[in-house]
Design a protein around this nucleic acid. Structure first.
Lengths: 188, 188
DNA sequence: TCCTTAATGCAAATATATTGCTTTTGCGCG
DNA sequence: CGCGCAAAAGCAATATATTTGCATTAAGGA
């Protein structure tokens, strides 16, 4: 869930926002999420608690907001044109990253701020653009939509991350990647 | 996330737990989740706030605990032996139920209580037992594991529910059901 | 029935969240 | 460039929520 953006994106408002975000990150490092309180963040950031309450509403929303900025958005691999191994390599990286302690903590923090209606975060958009980059580089081309790739590879990872007991099976994403590409090529 | 079960499952402890859960449900109806407070729940349930804090820890955990009891656990359909249409019918029902306002609210409340490590709720276990019921009734038998069915049909539904903007595409689960069964039969 | 102890009640102490009002300060406009 | 408006932040009083120590109640076993 993304918070209402401040109407003033520069100057003091920006400095406050950065100081608060930095304070949240620092305090999570030092004392952990569970001990985190708004007054403490305010003190560390050099602002008054009411500023935080007025801008973010509550601790949950603030922490969720910070966690979303930790989402990877850049494409992590260089497409080689070989779709199956590109997707498999990326799926492996992605699965390991998400199934790690920091990955799971980030996911937890993001989901705490989910409002139940809109997308919880921009994760799928970032994934989709990387998938599209891999698919358009494909040589020879494959007839696969980004959505079907996401459903086949990333949906099981994300679903199990949240709804199954940890850790994820080794190679879950990798094998799904080979499978979805093989199926597409077989039906071509 | 399931809470630590009271060591005394009967008598007064049980009555308190039921009264508190009932109070949460009633107050959510009357004033909505966002206005909910622990002292208010305590008053309605006829207990003191400290009882709630000691048993549940905080409001988020309590609401999550209540939401988990709304999870459907009974098998919603009668398997006919025709796997594809059984799975498709169920997927349709499931998708519509989850993508509804109460379904999304339940999911949101459950996820707020997720600790990031164990399964957020027993949802997948319930799903798996229904899938297994359908698969074992299959006539003729199909070579499909419950996990692959869940990955193909339910993972996309659950992933999109949380990480994509609402609503889900019509027939998402239904089509996935036909597809996964067709693929299994083709490779047999 | 009695004993043990988990669970609750109660109330004081502490911490957190809200709010009205004031002050600061971005930012548009002449 | 500096004026003025309004958004954002500060401050402090208030309201509300959470924690905690100790007393009391009542499950559940012997």
């Amino acid at each position: 869930m993304s918070m209402k953006q401040a109407t003033r994106p520069g100057g003091r408002s920006l400095r406050v926002q950065q100081a608060v975000h930095a304070a949240v990150r620092a305090l999570i490092e030092e004392i952990g999420r569970d001990a985190l309180t708004v007054p403490q963040i305010a003190q560390r950031a050099g602002v008054t608690p009411s500023t935080i309450y007025r801008r973010w509403g509550d601790l949950m929303t603030l922490v969720s907001d910070v966690a979303q900025r930790n989402l990877r958005t850049e494409c992590p691999i260089e497409p080689t044109g070989h779709v199956a191994s590109d997707l498999a390599a990326w799926a492996d990286i992605y699965q390991e990253e998400m199934d790690s302690t920091p990955g799971r903590e980030m996911m937890r923090d993001v989901l705490r701020g989910w409002d139940g209606t809109r997308a919880a975060c921009g994760l799928l958009d970032a994934v989709r653009s990387t998938v599209e980059a891999i698919l358009t580089t494909a040589d020879p081309p494959v007839s696969l939509s980004a959505d079907s790739v996401i459903d086949a590879i990333f949906a099981p990872i994300l679903m199990r991350l949240v709804f199954a007991d940890a850790p994820l099976p080794q190679g879950l994403g990798r094998e799904a990647a080979f499978r979805v590409v093989a199926t597409a090529q077989a039906s071509a």
